[in-house]
C-alpha cells in the first residue's frame, strides 16, 4: 500500500499543475487592470504603473508568468500582493479558521447525516422514514445564504434577547468552538441532506444482500447483523462522499464565513477576488486543491482498509 500511496501522490502533481493553470488563466482573464485597481478612483502615475507591471511580470506572456508562479510555489513562495505583502503572511491563521469551520461542518454532517440515514433505513416506509425524507428536502431547498441569515437572526440574536441564553455567537470567532456551531451547521446543511439519503440507500441495499441473510441464518442477533455485517459494507460509499466533501466544505466556506464574519480563507478569497489580488486568489485555490487531493488520497487508503476486494498493486 505504501507504494500505492507514493504513486498516487506523484499522480497528484499533474492534477495540481492542471488545476492551478486553469485557475491562473481564469483569474488573469478577468477584465480590468489589477494595477489600476490599486489606485481606486485616482489615476496612478504611468511610470509607477510601468514599474509595478514589470515587477509582477504583467507584461510577460501568460505561460511564462505561470512558470514563475509554479517555481515559486515549489520553493514555498506564493508571491506577494500588489501592495507588497507576502501571500504566505496573508494565509497566516486563516486556513486554521477555515479548517476548523470545515471540520465542524464535517463532524455535524457525519453525525447527523449518518444518524438520520440509519434511522430512515431501519424504519423504511414508516413515518420516521418519511419525516427524515421531508427534513432533507427542507435542508436542500433553502439556500445557504438564507439559512445563514435566518439562523443568525433567530439563534444568534433573538434567542439571546428573548431568553438570555447566549449559546450561539452572532459573528466572529472570539468564543472558540462555540462560534463555529452555527456557521458549521449552515455550511453542512446541503451535505447533511445528501449524506442522509446516501446512507439510507446504501444501508437499504446492503440489508438486501445475500450475506446479510447468511448472517441471520447463522443465528446472529439483529444488533450484530447491523453493527458488524451491514455497517462496514454500507460505509464504503459514504466514506468516499465524506472525503470528497471536505474539499467542497472548505470551498463553500466563502459564503458562510462572510455571513458570520469569520476571519478565514473563504472571506479572504472573497475580498481578494473583489480587490483583484490575483496572486492571493491563485495561492488560496492552490492550497484548496492540495487539501482536496490529500483528502481523496486518504479516502482511497481507507477504501482498502474497509474493502479487501480493492487491491493496490
Amino acid at each position: 500500500m505504501g507504494r500505492y500511496a507514493i504513486r498516487r501522490l506523484l499522480q497528484a502533481i499533474p492534477v495540481l499543475v492542471g488545476t492551478t493553470f486553469l485557475i491562473f488563466v481564469i483569474v488573469y482573464a478577468l477584465p480590468g487592470d489589477p494595477i489600476a485597481a490599486l489606485g481606486g478612483d485616482r489615476r496612478l502615475d504611468p511610470a509607477y504603473v510601468a514599474v509595478l507591471r514589470e515587477q509582477f511580470h504583467l507584461n510577460d506572456p501568460l505561460l511564462l508568468r505561470y512558470w514563475y508562479y509554479v517555481r515559486g510555489v515549489f520553493s514555498g513562495d506564493f508571491g506577494t500582493t500588489y501592495r507588497g505583502v507576502p501571500v504566505t503572511q496573508i494565509f497566516q491563521g486563516k486556513f486554521g479558521v477555515t479548517f476548523q469551520l470545515a471540520m465542524t461542518a464535517l463532524i455535524m454532517e457525519a453525525v447527523i447525516g449518518l444518524g438520520l440515514g440509519l434511522l430512515a433505513a431501519l424504519r423504511r416506509g414508516r413515518w420516521e422514514d418519511q419525516a427524515v425524507l421531508g427534513f432533507t428536502l427542507f435542508l436542500v431547498s433553502i439556500p445557504p445564504l438564507v439559512m445563514g441569515f435566518v439562523l443568525q437572526l433567530w439563534l444568534g440574536v433573538k434567542l439571546k434577547l428573548n431568553t438570555g441564553l447566549d449559546i450561539f455567537p452572532v459573528a466572529g470567532n472570539a468564543e472558540g468552538l462555540r462560534s463555529y456551531l452555527l456557521p458549521g451547521f449552515v455550511l453542512a446543511c446541503t451535505s447533511i441532506a445528501y449524506l442522509t439519503r446516501l446512507t439510507r440507500t446504501s444501508l437499504v441495499e446492503v440489508l438486501r444482500a445475500d450475506y446479510i441473510r447468511t448472517a441471520v441464518a447463522k443465528g446472529m442477533s439483529r444488533r450484530r447483523v447491523l453493527g458488524r455485517h451491514a455497517l462496514r459494507n454500507s460505509l464504503i460509499p459514504l466514506i468516499t462522499y465524506l472525503g470528497a466533501d471536505l474539499g467542497s466544505l472548505m470551498g463553500g466556506a466563502v459564503i458562510t464565513e462572510t455571513i458570520f464574519n469569520l476571519p478565514g480563507i473563504g472571506q479572504q478569497l472573497f475580498n481578494s477576488v473583489y480587490l483583484r489580488e490575483n496572486t492571493v486568489v491563485v495561492g488560496i485555490v492552490t492550497v484548496l486543491v492540495l487539501v482536496y487531493i490529500l483528502a481523496n488520497l486518504v479516502v482511497d487508503m481507507l477504501y482498502a482498509v474497509l474493502d479487501p476486494r480493492i487491491r493496490y498493486e
Partner: peptide
C-alpha cells in the same frame, strides 16, 4: 427460535460469493 437457527438447523446458500460477507 434464535437458539435453534444456525446452531441446530443450519443452511447453505446457493451462491457462496454473494452469501459470504466480502469484507
Amino acid at each position: 427460535r434464535s437458539q435453534i437457527r444456525g446452531q441446530r438447523i443450519a443452511m447453505v446458500f446457493q451462491d457462496a460469493l454473494s452469501a459470504l460477507n466480502p469484507v
